[in-house]
């Protein structure tokens, strides 16, 4: 189990073991427990209060910006990884360092705009 493919076989086996433990636990639970459902038992339990209406509510559009900020930061972080492995190598040096900071500066501009428009404040 060495080398590229061997190490990922280990990852796959570990994933399989995890799924088996999880599914096995739930299955054993289902086999061992008594099961007598009634309409009252099947309703959603929320602090003993009967649920009213449906479980669906339209959410506010302002939360979309938070999700989008998360996407921007994820893309941002993904480019930091390959950069971090090479920027100190011979043949890269200061130019590569500046290139990444230009990239970060553009994204920081977006954060600055969001901050100035008070998107980030909690209301």
């Amino acid at each position: 189990m060495t080398g590229y493919f061997g190490s990922y076989v280990v990852v796959a086996v570990l994933l399989g073991v995890g799924v088996a433990i999880f599914a096995g636990g739930l299955l054993a639970n289902r086999l061992l427990r008594p099961d007598r459902p009634t309409a009252e038992k099947l309703t959603t339990y929320e602090c003993g209060v009967d649920p009213v209406g449906e479980g669906w509510a339209q959410s506010q559009i302002r939360y979309y910006v938070f999700t989008y900020l998360y996407v921007v930061f994820a893309v941002d972080a993904v480019f930091l990884f390959p950069w971090a492995t090479v920027f100190a190598d011979p043949g890269f040096g200061l130019t590569t360092l500046v290139e990444m900071f230009v990239f970060l500066a553009f994204i920081a501009l977006g954060i600055l705009y969001a901050w100035r428009k008070r998107v980030l404040t909690w209301t």
Binding site: Y64, V65, L69, V72, V75, F103, I107, G110, K117
Partner: peptide, 15 residues
């Protein structure tokens, strides 16, 4: 570098 401008434009658009 063009990607950073794309991300900036989309972020400002979303805001």
């Amino acid at each position: 570098e063009a990607l950073s401008i794309l991300l900036l434009a989309a972020l400002i658009g979303a805001i």
